[in-house]
């Protein structure tokens, strides 16, 4: 990385550090004082989600999984509204990436459609459960899930091109297979999947969790598609992101029809995360310091503990 890149990266990291230590303090201050102008919280939301978008890209952690824990942990918004907004934020990220991934034939529609049916139906169930349960129960479940996600992120392996000896009957019947060009090997890779029924069962759980917590489920989709079902990592990542657009659509409607969407919150968050990820992608070309991933997972874990604290102690 050149001198300018180093300088920019250093400056950005300083700002992030200051912001992250200051934001909870500002938030707490806001809750105590209460007499802020109407634009205070939306603006803060925009700034925080902007940084979140950058960190999501640099840290290799989905923005959809960062939003709900961090915003519900440190902002005065009720978990109902945070989940509604979080689903819309994750949804728009998936909508932005979807067309490009589909056109490049990296996201596989044939793989996604059966999985999406399971996942989106279960997301509706998850949303219904999530809205019916008392908030503190959801907070505890959210906190525990977040901590589990952190552990998963730290330990999960990835398989660039898994070995799939034979496609299973279901995926053969549905003709779920494809081919893509792998530049590192300079050849076309034919791929197929196996253990499809087991994969679909796991997507039941993933769908319920996505609906219940308002999280983007990329952290779960990719391991199931890649490690369990054997799709190449590139196809898994692309299909997972596309899948989010369908899963989160169904859950978002449940939350929206329940009234859990406040426009004043939604737009700054959406714009913040999108702009943040564009900036993040530019920064990524310069460098990707490894400590950022640790830092982001650390922040996520902290947010998970905060959710547990809120749920247990109120």
């Amino acid at each position: 990385m050149g001198k300018n890149g180093r300088y920019a990266m250093g400056l950005f990291l300083c700002c992030t550090a200051i912001l992250l230590t200051a934001a909870p303090a500002i938030a707490q201050n806001g809750i105590d004082n209460g007499g802020h102008s109407w634009w205070f919280w939306p603006l803060l939301l925009f700034i925080v989600t902007f940084v979140m978008g950058i960190l999501a890209v640099l840290g290799g952690v989905g923005g959809g999984v960062l939003f709900v824990p961090i915003i519900s942990g440190f902002f005065p918004f009720h978990l109902d509204f945070v989940r509604g907004t979080g689903l819309l934020v994750a949804l728009s990220g998936a909508l932005a990436a979807g067309p490009g991934l589909l056109k490049a034939n990296l996201a596989s529609l044939r793989l996604a459609i059966p999985v999406a049916l399971i996942a989106s139906s279960c997301a509706i169930v998850g949303a219904m459960i999530g809205l019916a349960l008392p908030t503190n129960v959801v907070q505890i479940a959210l906190g525990a899930t977040i901590l589990g996600i952190c552990i998963l992120m730290l330990t999960a392996k990835k398989s660039t091109i898994p070995d799939v000896p034979e496609a299973d009957k279901l995926s053969s019947a549905l003709r779920i297979y494809g081919v893509y060009y792998e530049p590192s090997l300079k050849q076309n890779i034919n791929w197929k999947v196996h253990r499809t029924p087991l994969g679909l069962c796991l997507f039941v759980i993933i769908g319920v969790m996505a609906g219940m917590f308002g999280l983007g489920a990329g952290w779960a989709n990719v391991p199931v598609l890649n490690l369990l079902m054997g799709a190449p990592l590139k196809i898994s990542v692309a299909t997972s992101k596309f899948l989010l657009s369908i899963t989160d659509t169904s859950a978002a409607w449940i939350y929206m029809n329940k009234g859990c969407v406040i426009p004043l919150m939604v737009v700054p968050s959406l714009v913040g995360i999108m702009l943040g990820s564009f900036v993040g992608v530019r920064l990524l070309k310069v460098a990707k310091p490894t400590f950022i991933r640790w830092m982001v997972i650390g922040i996520l874990a902290f947010a998970g503990l905060k959710a547990l604290q809120k749920g247990i102690f109120g």
Partner: peptide, 15 residues
């Protein structure tokens, strides 16, 4: 569109 695609891979720690 290509920025959106890059985001998808970056967020999966697979940039």
């Amino acid at each position: 569109s290509s920025a959106g695609v890059s985001t998808a891979f970056a967020e999966a720690n697979a940039e």
